[in-house]
Design a protein around this nucleic acid. Sequence first.
DNA 1: TGTTGCGGGCGGC
DNA 2: GCCGCCCGCAACA
Length: 506
Amino acid sequence: MGRWSNADEQSMDKDQFDSSDCVCSFGMKLTWDINDPKLPQDTKQCDAFQEWTDGYVRYIYSSEDKNAQRHLSGWAMRNTNNHNCQILKKSCLGVVVCSRNCSLPDGSKLQLRPAICDKARQKQQKKLCPNCNSALELIPCRGHSGYPVTNFWRVDGKAIFFQAKGVHDHPRPESKSETEARRSAVKRRMSSPNFSQKRRLVEPEPGRYHDMAFPNIHQLTMEGPERFSIIAESNFPIQTQHYPPFQNTEPYKFPYDTHTAAAMADAPSSLQKPANHRLYMTCPPCGYDFAVPGYLGSGPYPTALYKDPSSPQTETEPNKSGSSLSAMPHGTSPLGSHERSYTESTGKHHGWKQILSKGAYGERGDYSQLPTNANHHYYNSDYPCRYTGPAPATPAALQTIITTTTKVSYQPCPKPSVVKYGENLYDVKGLSNCNSILEEASSNSYSDLKIPEDSGVIKSALSYQDTLPAKIERSENFEGYRYSSYSSNSYPERMSHPFRYDSGEY
DNA sequence: TGTTGCGGGCGGC
DNA sequence: GCCGCCCGCAACA
């Protein structure tokens, strides 16, 4: 594929940031918009497929890239009719969470992938949280000026052009690959001789994970293959990158490969927890802090936020200092589910930032070692990130992104908005390693008007870390990625909980 | 049963 | 006219 050859995934993170040349996606280096009558034809390079794109980014994939061909995305994207058969448009559905935002014993959270089909989604939302039996609710994506983030795909020549508009203002749902993996895993389990026995152990109270031999299990079973993305602590599975589905055929040589492979042998499920831990560790509050100065303090979660006095559940988080933070007290909260969810998720991040500023987990240390993390606004606590606050739910939050409307990319937009976007959202100055990016972006043919999108480069570029783990764990065989959720960074933790995923969650 | 893509149609701006 | 969104349909897994 492109600049990031699979051969050096291990060093990819470094390469991405050590070299200005690697900071931006190839697609971002060229001046084009998905709506342009003519797209760049001299695409000598292609970008490596990005599963979790976020922000105003552009990528140029090889037409041979299977994932690109399938228009895959980690986010739950549904087809949107834009009445343009040349350009496939998809909009984000958001994420499905527990209406009470309950926390599992280990502090993890459920973050389901919204069903793409309207019917299936409605059906999905009728189900109850496997942990607290509360209703599930859909947190809609409002990351694009109040509208769902949109992804555009266009095949032109020998390349597949991808352009994303908007910044996801919600936690990551379980990736499609994870969902599929879990389903297949469940099927396997169901058909396995040991299933009935295990099942007895777990089924008595499907919703009571406390009863489970391994409370830390990150995966729950609900009605079989039902997919649950349980994220420890944070609502942001952002770090949970397992991209099993990637069809990258290139061998990913990673220290953890063997481990993963071995683990996968038994574990059918795609677990995100590990990823989450990683999240917590490395992922700082991200969000529109800048836009809403007072928001952080007022948030329901921050440090204190997490601890809702009124919530008895808060105490249910036994094993993690951090996890307790995520306890959700909203049991009776009349708040709009969406709004509430947003605040929660965002607040949590704050909490994490504050609480974990020093990295309560060893993971963090490990994670921080990755240059990518340091630069990623999502993960780096040093940089403001969107998710800090209920960006989408609050007007203030919207203000920060409102300037970047769908048309921004291909239509001149008010500078003020653009500038604001860049300054606030990406804190360019703070990204020492990203300066080159901006410079590059600004130096290229794009006018400052396009900064918003280019700014996304930073994000996207930084987000490559996300893909790193994916690549590492990526496997053509879904079976292989059960543990893919473990990011390379979270590996340490994985080691510390060698059994939680294997033991019976089914 | 769910995903994906297509396309008609509607309403708001 | 553009856009978001709803709906239905068909192919596919």
